[in-house]
Design a protein around this nucleic acid. Sequence first.
DNA 1: GATTTCATGTAAGACGTTACATGATTCA
DNA 2: TGAATCATGTAACGTCTTACATGAAATC
Lengths: 187, 187
Amino acid sequence: MTSSAATFVVLGLVTRRPGSGYDIAAFADRSVRHFWPISRSQLYTELSRLEELGWASGTAVLQDRYPTKRVYEATPAGLAALRQWLDSAPRQHRQRMQDPVVLRTFLGPHMSRDRLADQLRAHREQAETLRAELSDVVDHLDAKGPVGPHRFGRATARYGILQAEATIAWTQEVQAMLDAEPDPETG
Amino acid sequence: MTSSAATFVVLGLVTRRPGSGYDIAAFADRSVRHFWPISRSQLYTELSRLEELGWASGTAVLQDRYPTKRVYEATPAGLAALRQWLDSAPRQHRQRMQDPVVLRTFLGPHMSRDRLADQLRAHREQAETLRAELSDVVDHLDAKGPVGPHRFGRATARYGILQAEATIAWTQEVQAMLDAEPDPETG
DNA sequence: GATTTCATGTAAGACGTTACATGATTCA
DNA sequence: TGAATCATGTAACGTCTTACATGAAATC
């Protein structure tokens, strides 16, 4: 039974907010998506793993209008494992990032200027959407007061906002560059 | 013979700067590392793939002081394949990113404040180093004049700089938050 | 009647990393 | 003498995604 960083992501989510896989997926989408996206199927895999390890316990909860769900919560052993992992060596788990739009910009000399401009616009719009969503999260958490564990959730949302703003500024910068040179050569 | 995005990253690198695997690795480190990191072994794998596909041709070059190297350059078929890929549907190849430090911040309630502060400092220093490296790249490219294919390389370096600056600002923000609340509880 | 929400999982495979393996030359 | 540079690859493994599979209830 091996555990990866994703195991601890899910364990962290469960710690914050116990619930079914379905619930946790929704929570993950609002919280960790912009710095540690996780697929639905991996989520369920990790929940099973957590239960096998004794780090979370699942309980079947009957509902009358909806299917029975399995609600997970962290066990004391799970909390201990999480803290030990966090305390352990910074684990040079390299910051992975792949940005297809930046790649396309890099390969710009091979693209039509209009097509690149389209991609940049789409990218900017995505970043604007993300910024808006995360701003809502921050506002919502601010309404709860300046203390408590959601301070940290707020901090990670701020990270996404700052990155999104950098992305928006960058797309505008590149667009300005494209506009400045009006030669539509593809080669 | 399947080709992934990484295949086209390497093909793009070869297009820009023909050379040996070793040369290309060095170039990748200065150019695409911050938005599409690639391991050395994957590089060699992709170069073999490119040759098998007929998208790049490798030629053995003898050297007297150093081992013989295999120099690659893109073929016309490779250029065509690259352009077709770039022209094809924006390929919802999701922007992958995993940031361990942001994750640790999210799990802040389970960490000692000092340990988190250490990680944030290390992260900020890494971002500062990256910003400095990329600033050098930009300055270097600016010295070559405002036109030519390196405009795009400059643009992608600018991306890294803006992201690094956002990261630096964020770590300072979080550090200020930690400093504001002097309760060293770990639970 | 169609779509969305709720709910959970498996199986196959793509993708990418680390560790292993080798060895000459140059420079301090 | 030791480290760094130059140079290339394989093998094993870990990680994660997509597609597949199912099905009831609620809402439009």
